[in-house]
Nucleic acid binder design. Structure first.
Lengths: 210, 210
DNA sequence: AAGTGTGAATCGCTTCACAGCG
DNA sequence: CGCTGTGAAGCGATTCACACTT
């Protein structure tokens, strides 16, 4: 494997590279230069080369990079070279939207369980998934060896559900509730704060017009 | 007004500061020190002071910061001291979830229009909003002076809708489609790529276990 | 000739350390 | 004495420039 340490900023770009290379492959292009990737992604050619060199000696001087090799290596590093199961907690509006979101599976993630604590929702079906009682969380996570979970519950319930997920052995938590979650250091939490995104967008617009 | 230039990283923290201060105010706390804010948000005290000093001379030496003054200033900088109208395009699963998301209004944003190009959806009501024909986009945006829009349509339609939004005078675009949008430089685009978030989470978990 | 890989220079942000105020 | 505000130092990431490979 390449380097053990990946700068946070470079890790973020890794996903972008993979997306771009996949799109090139779909368009039938089998090789690409650092300059072309930089142009498409709004980066500099030097930065692209630095990143790609870090992920392994992937390029050929004078030629460029071979797209299939890039895609394969990117997926290997990201761990999405095989489908990974994900638990989704919360079958409200947002949970249902995420349950039916087609993008996850295309990117190597499969939501294999949809759970809620509202017994009126249990048994209903969304996006091919039957809502299960959250009491089954631990059992399901263990049985299917689920390491990642998405949290789409109201803020008031988020910490309680997070505790359940931690006890069920979850290692990574994608949190859509606008609260900071208190979890053991061994568990990774990533919060998507929707209103924060809007705030930042509004601020960027404000500053641009000055 | 404070400084005209806000580092990208500091701007991001601005939203976090506001959230924390609001939560302190709700708990009845009227003053706070840089150390306490740092502790709550996982930053260093020095960084908090640097940030807050940038946003204006807000603190009192030996005392700390007054929460109401902080909240007021933060909101003023973010432009959320008054409710800002937002257009939401796409009444699919994700669009409906966003239309009914209560967090936006609490943070100074009000979705005032929900639009879709699917005439079967036009006229339906979600979260108090009636779905309108996207043909009315330009009219609605002009009438209500809407500057910000949320794009929750399939990737295949995203660029077309983005073009419409730009022509309607939108200045900021929160994009939930997994595609890069081509817009004039004067328009700010922020993309929330859901599967990218999962990828990064998975990678963080992977790297942690090494 | 085209394009990668990489040391060196540079840039921007974070942390440190402390002067100064209440 | 507690705590802010800030120059200075430190650090990580980006950019530059170019030797080197095909």
């Amino acid at each position: 494997m390449a380097k053990q340490t990946i700068p946070k900023a470079a890790a973020l770009r890794l996903s972008l590279y993979l997306r771009e290379v996949e799109s090139l492959l779909e368009a039938g292009q089998t090789k690409v230069s650092s300059g072309q990737l930089a142009e498409s992604l709004g980066l500099t050619a030097a930065q692209v080369r630095k990143d790609l060199a870090r992920f392994g000696p992937l390029g050929r001087a004078g030629i460029g990079y071979l797209c299939p090799a890039l895609a394969e290596q990117f997926r290997r590093i990201l761990g999405t070279d095989q489908l990974r199961p994900v638990a989704l907690v919360g079958a409200g509006n947002l949970g249902r939207a995420l349950a039916t979101y087609p993008g996850f599976e295309r990117r190597g993630f499969k939501i294999t369980a949809l759970l809620d604590n509202d017994l009126r929702k249990v048994g209903r079906q969304y996006g091919g998934l039957i809502v299960q009682d959250i009491a089954k969380l631990h059992f399901v996570c263990q049985r299917d060896r689920i390491r990642l979970a998405i949290l789409a519950v109201p803020g008031s319930a988020a910490q309680d559900v997070a505790d359940l997920l931690v006890r069920a052995g979850i290692q990574g938590l994608l949190n859509f509730s606008p609260v900071r979650l208190d979890v053991p250091a061994a568990v990774v939490v990533s919060t998507v704060a929707l209103s924060l995104e809007l705030e930042q967008l509004g601020l960027a617009v404000r500053l641009r017009n000055k």
